[in-house]
Design a protein around this nucleic acid. Sequence first.
DNA 1: TGAAGTTGGGTTATCGATAACCTACTTTAG
DNA 2: CTAAAGTAGGTTATCGATAACCCAACTTCA
Lengths: 334, 334
Amino acid sequence: MKKNNVTIADVAALAGVSKMTVSKVLRDTGSISKDTRDKIHKAVDELGYVKNSLAGLLSSQKSSMIGIIIPSASDTIFAEVLSGTNSVIRPKGFNTLIGESLFDPQIEYEALSTMLSLQPAGLIISGGIDRSEETLALIAKRRCPLISLWDGEDAVGDLTIGLSHYEAGETMARHFIECDFRKVAYVGSELDLDLCARQRFQGFRDTMQDASRELRVETSIDGSRQSLTGRQLTESLIRKHPDTDAIYYLNDAMATGGMSWLYEAGINIPEQVAAAGFNGTSIGQAVRTRLTTLNVSRRAIGEAAASAILKFIEGDTEIDKHQVEVTFVQGNTT
Amino acid sequence: MKKNNVTIADVAALAGVSKMTVSKVLRDTGSISKDTRDKIHKAVDELGYVKNSLAGLLSSQKSSMIGIIIPSASDTIFAEVLSGTNSVIRPKGFNTLIGESLFDPQIEYEALSTMLSLQPAGLIISGGIDRSEETLALIAKRRCPLISLWDGEDAVGDLTIGLSHYEAGETMARHFIECDFRKVAYVGSELDLDLCARQRFQGFRDTMQDASRELRVETSIDGSRQSLTGRQLTESLIRKHPDTDAIYYLNDAMATGGMSWLYEAGINIPEQVAAAGFNGTSIGQAVRTRLTTLNVSRRAIGEAAASAILKFIEGDTEIDKHQVEVTFVQGNTT
DNA sequence: TGAAGTTGGGTTATCGATAACCTACTTTAG
DNA sequence: CTAAAGTAGGTTATCGATAACCCAACTTCA
């Protein structure tokens, strides 16, 4: 909070050179003698000079910031994506600007808007959310590369990295059919908000229908997509349909919540009721339970997105569409 | 990536007013007639003008960015802190700049350094890491409020928010003594990096020593602080000391990893070996296992830090030292 | 020996917005 | 009726750095 702002002008004055020379030395460009370089570095140390990047960015019209917008930083799925992008970006000297949309189109719009005003070098935006018209307009107006994640079909921007959630749902449905489950249910939440989850559900539902299997659906609009909601929905599902023999959950967290209720209700997994989730998070692979699920490397998605953004920034346009691999995990719950 | 940069000058020209008038209208200051305001908004829409905050920040010498440095964004503990701060900061119009230190003092220094050069309005820095001399020098030179998290005794900055990890270790030790465990072990990792974990260990160890209880310690330097490491260390611990009757783990994740090995080895929890962790994360409260642990609200820590930073920014210096509450969770593992 | 290249650095003009201070003209109050 | 106060908007000077260009003096070599 100190007042005195040390600028390169002060450094220049102390070192007895011009501002431009200081700027060059600090950026390691131009040809400056070892002698002056030393003088300048000494002055920098003496004054405790800290560069003001804002001024530099404005002047050079370049940016060192890469923005990433995800629904929630505390959701381990997105946290891992974030960590993946950051691990690629940081060593290259870029900073990460983060925005959370909380699955709210309006908040997403605001996050994007303020982010764009900071002139980022690139933008990574997580999909799985219905975007507002305004947001799409903003995206169209952008002046930096933009990569969307996890978006499935209706992606925006220069490139999409992720997987087909519809196919993921199909995959699990085929597994359920192979296991010959007869009274199958789907448990999820916030399907109106989470587009990816909705696509998985649709893929699952369509495949079950094609096989002429009945499907019970237990969803809520207001519950979060976490453990507790899975527990509650499982309870109400089983009360309505006690003969259910398999449940496909929106994600691993909801699956563990649901399974803990089944366990406490004395219902054996998988003998009486089988369960499967999505994500391959560690919570599904806990002490005695190894949840059947589809594993996705969130970190790999983040890393791929970051690498692609860096390529775009460097002007490389030869970027191949990147599909992240999904692996089926056979646990002991189906 | 389009060339044409629309600036307020363009907007002003189209609306037939001066740049200053546009600036005032966009910031909603000064007194401008409804008529000109409309003209300007129309011009803004027509041109698709997007504000360049960099220029504004440079000129006004204010900042809309708050930086937060945490060891890892993918670690659920820190992800929740991050989410907590962001939830407070965002509605107030601030942006979050994130840095990951990966528990590496050098990386932390670099993150802090580039962050400071972006002239943030405030800084939140997570503790639990031994800081380098350079980092401390940078912190001393800063021109914005700085709050440190989770730091225990040797905190830096204007305020610390968190808890005493030493006391947390003591609390769990007292519980172990009450349960009358005799052959107690501690399992942890990376204690050289994670200062907080080290303090918990010390609190635990000291209390056990005061009660003249033997304590076995199984730690590794290179393993991460996650589930798999807990599993491996538990295995080697039990091989060395088959009579161990209780294990205090560095955190919940390591505890679940350890317990899954115990389970598979046919060792009953808690009859043969009891287990406890730290954090109160959902992974500890899975299907059949409710881990005994100490619950800390990471989100509350993040929120408290963000609120405090905002107060500092507003010039309020009457900020009370904030201690976050820790609650003992009695599970079925001890 | 003189043209051309190299080395080491300085000048000037922005980048896009805002702070601080003005300037007319219009009200309002005494 | 006039001075004080308010309304609506404009001028000018930065903020701190960088791009682009310029300029001496010294080498180098045909």
